[in-house]
């Protein structure tokens, strides 16, 4: 893991929109302590903005009623929280064991060349971001990639071409 502690300010104040506000209030009733809402609230914030800015993290802390440093801890510990903006299409290639054995590197190399990105980068037009991630739990249908959370299994270069062609 590389350092994730450099938070980025969006320059904009953050608050939940009304739907997420309601969802927060609905979920909080499910837990006996407010701090259990830190992770769900971070998810809500990320769904809303696509990533977690300094402002969003501070907002979650205030909303839950805990220390910003504590929410900061969680946001940096759990790697699915995006601490910088990602592309319109966020591509995660599984790098672990079974996908590794079934040539995930070809997938990474193809995407890197095609999109002109190294893992961890976002394309200049903001369309794509590429990430290598740890085991995605689809080992029987390796190699696998996730596009905005959607799984694409038994990938190969041919299927990638079709997939990329469908993203605009």
């Amino acid at each position: 893991m590389s350092d994730r502690s450099q938070l980025i300010s969006s320059g904009q104040p953050f608050t939940f929109d009304s739907a997420r506000d309601a969802e927060f209030e609905r979920l909080i009733k499910r837990y006996p302590i407010r701090e259990s809402m830190i992770m769900p609230a971070l998810w809500l914030a990320q769904e809303q903005e696509g990533w977690l800015s300094t402002e969003a993290i501070a907002y979650v802390a205030e909303r839950v009623g805990t220390y910003p440093a504590k929410v900061f801890e969680l946001a940096t510990f759990y790697t699915m929280y995006h601490l910088k903006p990602v592309g319109k299409y966020h591509l995660c290639v599984c790098r672990t064991l079974s996908c590794y054995l079934r040539e995930k590197q070809e997938i990474v190399d193809y995407l890197a060349a095609e999109l002109g990105l190294r893992p961890g980068e976002v394309s200049e037009d903001g369309m794509f971001s590429l990430e290598e991630v740890e085991c995605l739990g689809h080992c029987g249908t390796a190699p696998v990639i996730q596009v905005n959370g959607e799984f694409h299994e038994e990938m190969n270069v041919e299927k990638l071409k079709t997939l990329l062609a469908g993203l605009d």
Binding site: M1, S9, I57, T66, Y67, P68, A69, K70, E73
Partner: peptide, 19 residues
């Protein structure tokens, strides 16, 4: 007052303050 936290994990873990 909770100003400090240990952010990241593995050997990237470090003590920090919220910005």
């Amino acid at each position: 007052t909770g100003e400090l936290g240990i952010v990241n994990r593995t050997d990237a873990a470090r003590v920090d303050i919220f910005p």
